[in-house]
C-alpha cells in the first residue's frame, strides 16, 4: 500500500511541484491580504505591525456608517452599478442574437471582430476619448451643438451626466466582447431544431424566442448572477479618471473613497473597514441572487 503510494508520488511528483508555484503566488497576494483584513478591527500603525496594533472592535465601521459621506457614497455606488447592470446585462444578449441572425458570413465575422476591439483599449484612453468628444473646449459634441445653434453642455463637470458617461462608455467598450459568451452558447444549438421549426412555418422571431433564447438561458443566468455579485464593485479605474471637483456629488463611489481615505490620507484601518464592508455586500448579493436563481430556474452557480 505505502509502496504503491510512493510509486504514485514518484511518478506524479511533478504535478504537485508545478501546482506549488501558483499556490505560492496565491498565498502571498490573495490569502495574506485576506488575513490583513483584521486591521479593519484594529488601530493599525506601521510601528506595531498588524499583530501588535490594538483591537478596537467595530469602531471604524461605526465611524463610516455615521460619517457624512456614508449615505452619499452608498447612493452613488448603487446608482451607477444598478444603472450599469440594467443596461449591460441585456444589451450583449440582444446584440448576440442579432449577430446570430446575420446570414452573410463575412458581414457577420467582420461586425463581430470590430465589436470586440474597444474591449482592448485602455481605460485611460477611453476617458481621454470621452474628453475629446464631450469636453467643453473643443469637444466634438459641443462643437456639433454650437454648429446647429444649440447651447453647449458641460458633460464632464456635471453630476447629472456622470452616470450616463460612465455607463454608456462602458457599453461602447464592452458590449461586443460581452456577446462572445452567448455566441459560444449559440454555436452549440443543433441546427435541425431550426430546420424543423422553419418547415413548420415558424418566423425568425418565433425561432429566436422558442429555440435560441431557451438554449442560452443557463448562460444568461450565470452571467447575470456574476454581474450582480459585483454590484458594489463600481470600477475604480474609470470612475477615478472621470472624477473632478464638479461632479464629485455623484461620482464619489466606494472604491474611490477607499482609495482616497486609505492611500492618500493614510487611514489604513478605516479604509480597510470600508473595503471589507464593500466585499461583504458583494458576497451577500452573490449569495442572494444565486438563491433566487435556484428557486426560479434550475441554473445557479453552486
Amino acid at each position: 500500500m505505502t509502496k504503491s503510494r510512493w510509486k504514485y508520488f514518484k511518478q506524479h511528483k511533478w504535478l504537485y511541484l508545478m501546482l506549488a508555484v501558483p499556490i505560492i503566488f496565491v498565498l502571498i497576494w490573495n490569502y495574506w491580504p485576506m488575513y490583513g483584513v483584521v486591521i479593519a478591527f484594529k488601530d493599525y500603525s506601521p510601528a506595531f505591525g498588524i499583530l501588535g496594533s490594538p483591537w478596537v472592535g467595530l469602531k471604524h465601521f461605526k465611524r463610516f456608517f455615521h460619517s457624512y459621506f456614508f449615505g452619499n457614497v452608498m447612493i452613488n455606488t448603487l446608482r451607477v452599478s444598478i444603472y450599469s447592470l440594467l443596461v449591460s446585462i441585456p444589451l450583449p444578449i440582444i446584440l448576440a442574437l442579432m449577430f446570430n441572425e446575420i446570414r452573410i458570413k463575412w458581414f457577420k465575422s467582420t461586425a463581430q471582430t470590430i465589436s470586440y476591439i474597444p474591449n482592448f483599449i485602455s481605460v485611460v484612453v477611453i476617458v481621454g476619448m470621452i474628453n475629446f468628444f464631450f469636453g467643453t473646449q473643443n469637444g466634438a459634441i459641443n462643437t456639433l451643438l454650437s454648429a446647429v445653434g444649440l447651447k453647449q453642455i458641460d458633460f464632464l463637470g456635471s453630476p447629472a451626466w456622470f452616470p450616463h458617461l460612465y455607463v454608456w462608455s462602458g457599453i461602447w467598450q464592452g458590449v461586443g466582447w460581452g456577446t462572445l459568451i452567448y455566441t459560444a452558447a449559440m454555436s452549440g444549438i443543433p441546427q435541425d431544431q431550426y430546420e424543423a421549426a422553419y418547415l413548420e412555418g415558424a418566423t425568425r422571431l418565433q425561432c429566436i424566442k422558442n429555440i435560441t433564447i431557451p438554449a442560452i438561458m443557463p448562460t444568461i443566468v450565470i452571467s447575470a448572477i456574476l454581474a450582480t455579485g459585483g454590484i458594489m464593485a463600481v470600477g475604480f479605474d474609470k470612475t477615478y479618471l472621470l472624477q473632478n471637483a464638479s461632479n464629485l456629488s455623484t461620482s464619489e463611489v466606494l472604491s474611490t473613497y477607499t482609495y482616497k481615505v486609505g492611500i492618500i490620507n493614510g487611514e489604513y484601518s478605516f479604509s480597510a473597514a470600508v473595503g471589507l464592508f464593500n466585499n461583504i455586500i458583494n458576497f451577500i448579493m452573490l449569495f442572494v441572487v444565486n438563491k433566487f436563481a435556484q428557486k426560479v430556474g434550475e441554473t445557479s452557480l453552486w
Partner: peptide, 8 residues
Amino acid sequence: FFSGGLIP
C-alpha cells in the same frame, strides 16, 4: 469572491 481589498 473574497479579497483582502486595496489596503491589506
